[in-house]
Each structure stands twice: as C-alpha cells, then as structure tokens.
Amino acid sequence: MKAKVYISLKKGILDPQGKAVERALATLGFSGVEGVRIGKYLEVELKPQEAETASQSVKEMCEKLLANTVIETYRYELEPD
C-alpha cells in the first residue's frame, strides 16, 4: 500500500520560492499566470494493513513530522498495491 501525501502552504503565508517561479514564468512570456505556490509531495510505502489503520497512521505522521501545521496543510490518498 502506498500513501501519497501532499503538503502545501496555508493561504496568506508568504512563499518566496513560488513568487520567484511566478516571475520566471512571466519572463518566459506565460502571461496567464496569476500565482505559484510550491509545496511538497511524498510517497510513503506502507506494509499491507487495513485502510482505516493506514489512514490513521498517515494522519499522525503528517501531524507529527511531515507537515508543520503552523504554516502548512496536508492531504493524502491511499493507493492499494
């Protein structure tokens, strides 16, 4: 089983990297870009287990280590093998 974890910055938190990429896109002529936010994507390989147990466990991983909930939000999907 695999957990796909997406971590993104909360609304209103400054993202200097995203801003830099946004400016670079504008320089390249992509005039339709309104904003860029950079986040993280993690793939966590899990031992075979009940989906509910896995979900609870991944949530704890996110709260404890993978995301800093002061500035980040997270969501995840479980993918069976």
């Binding site: 200097p16 990297q17 830099a20």
Partner: peptide
C-alpha cells in the same frame, strides 16, 4: 520552533 519550545516559524528568506 519545531520542538514547540518557542512559538512561530522560520520561512525561506524573502529574497530566496
């Protein structure tokens, strides 16, 4: 900050 002994967070410098 990560350990929760102090409040807040340190982000990337605004200049990156």
């Amino acid at each position: 900050l990560e350990a929760g002994l102090l409040p807040g967070v340190l982000l990337r410098n605004r200049s990156t």
